[in-house]
């Protein structure tokens, strides 16, 4: 059984071939997403930072939180890290080394937005971030981060059209 799940996740991890990161992606508004139907929500950027620093590892209902990151060189990861954690990913190396020394690993990295959406939609407790306009009915928005870096819990579909950069 574990092997089939492993194959599935390998397939997810390989989806980046289909969706390479865009240079414009860093300017897009972002959605922090959980699985469709999940009641898990995030109360603002400080709470999101605690999740992505692995300081907060459990949802209020006791479910383990499974945060997902995009690759460190992805412009969306760079921006997310700067806005939420206050620094770029490479400046967190010392922090993750310290946690690793105590047996705590950083969030799992998946290579594409589609991989994040699939993982989050299939994983109870999963949470990830994707461009706002890439979400679909597999996930629910837990928080949005606009182009200015401000967070909001509500999402207006119009925001996607309004804020989507010209390609």
């Amino acid at each position: 059984m574990k092997l089939t799940r492993g194959i599935l996740l390998l397939a997810i991890a390989g989806l980046h071939v289909l969706a390479p990161p865009s240079a414009l992606a860093a300017d897009e508004p972002m959605a922090v997403v959980v699985a469709e139907g999940s009641r898990h929500r995030v109360e603002g950027l400080p709470a999101l930072a605690e999740i992505y620093r692995r300081k907060k590892q459990y949802w209020p209902d006791g479910q383990h939180i499974e945060p997902i990151n995009l690759p460190a060189d992805d412009p969306r990861r760079q921006r997310f890290s700067q806005v939420v954690l206050g620094m770029p990913p490479d400046r967190l190396d010392a922090y993750w080394n310290e946690l690793y020394f105590h047996g705590v690993l950083p969030p799992t990295v998946l290579q594409s937005v589609e991989a994040v959406l699939r993982f989050v939609s299939m994983t109870p407790g999963g949470i990830g971030y994707v461009p706002l306009c890439s979400i679909d009915n597999r996930v629910t928005i837990a928080l949005t981060i606009d182009t200015g870096g401000s967070a909001a819990e509500r999402f207006s579909p119009a925001a996607c059209k309004r804020e989507q950069p010209v390609r």
């Binding site: 492993g6 996740l9 390998l10 991890a13 383990h64 499974e66 998946l110 993982f119």
Partner: peptide
């Protein structure tokens, strides 16, 4: 697709990738 992923397997997937 209904199978929930585990963190261990997710890590494995990334490491393998």
């Amino acid at each position: 697709l209904a199978q929930p992923a585990t963190p261990a397997l997710a890590q494995q997937a990334v490491a393998d990738d």
